[in-house]
Amino acid sequence: MTEIFDRFGKPLGGIFLGLALLWLAGMVLVPGVFMINASLRPHLPPPLRGGELDVYVLDNFAYLINHVNHGRIFFKTVWSSALVTLATLLLCYPIAFWLAKVARRWQVAVMLVLLLIPYLMNEVLRGLAWYIILAFSGPLNAILIGLGLMDEPVRWYGDGGVVAGMAYAYLLFMLFPIYNAISTLDRAQIDAARDLGASAWRIHRRVVLPHAKVGIATGCVFVFMMAAGSYVAPALLGAPGSRWFTQIVYEWFFEIGNWNRGAAYGVALMAMCLAVVLGLLALFRVNLASAVK
């Protein structure tokens, strides 16, 4: 805090600090309090609001727990988000290692451009691209059948399509933290391990992975949070049987108009995500501050 004042002086430092606090209050604190408040009140017609029926209850959360499908979808969303996270991690780690330690300078440049170009489009259009690729009579089926790998076209829409679409959508959020982390690894560490006779597998397990841990944790937190809160990919690439929890939250708010129940669902998802993220960080033995740095 004093560092800010030392660097920018009292007036300018004060403005920066004030803006940060305003942002925090306006974007995080107030909406959060509003959400939690709404989630704990019953849904009442306007004349009854503020009356004797408007008291704090847990009915909205109980509804989620007792619902035939919503609880299942809730956990499926968390599980699938974890799956998306794992898929992006498995995909990104080799690419990140290659970019950071193996590739030549021009190869890095070309690869980064190829990876970045799709991200110049917005998320909806990228989702739509996968919508076309995965279509029943779309290019993916056509290619696989053309190569003789399949006899019949497959219906990709559904859980598989959603996970694939999301893994693609959030690739860079996993790639860059890991790439950054591995870039800072002293090349001599790898050489030393190899010189001492370690296999490639052991070099990664004992030397590269521990070093990249913070980057991996950061990437996992980003991707998991974004996947769990994603709306576009499941809406486009899902099937009726593969609804995402965010779609239900959306329904409560904008189709059914029950904001209180929607808020409760949202708070439940947020709490779950927070628990998973903290669990993840504990697993990696990384603290939150260094993970989001």
């Binding site: 001599a188 050489d191 030393a192 521990p210 070093h211």
Partner: peptide, 8 residues
């Protein structure tokens, strides 16, 4: 190695 490259 010059940096010693001990595994931290």
């Amino acid at each position: 190695f010059q940096s010693l490259a001990l595994f931290p």
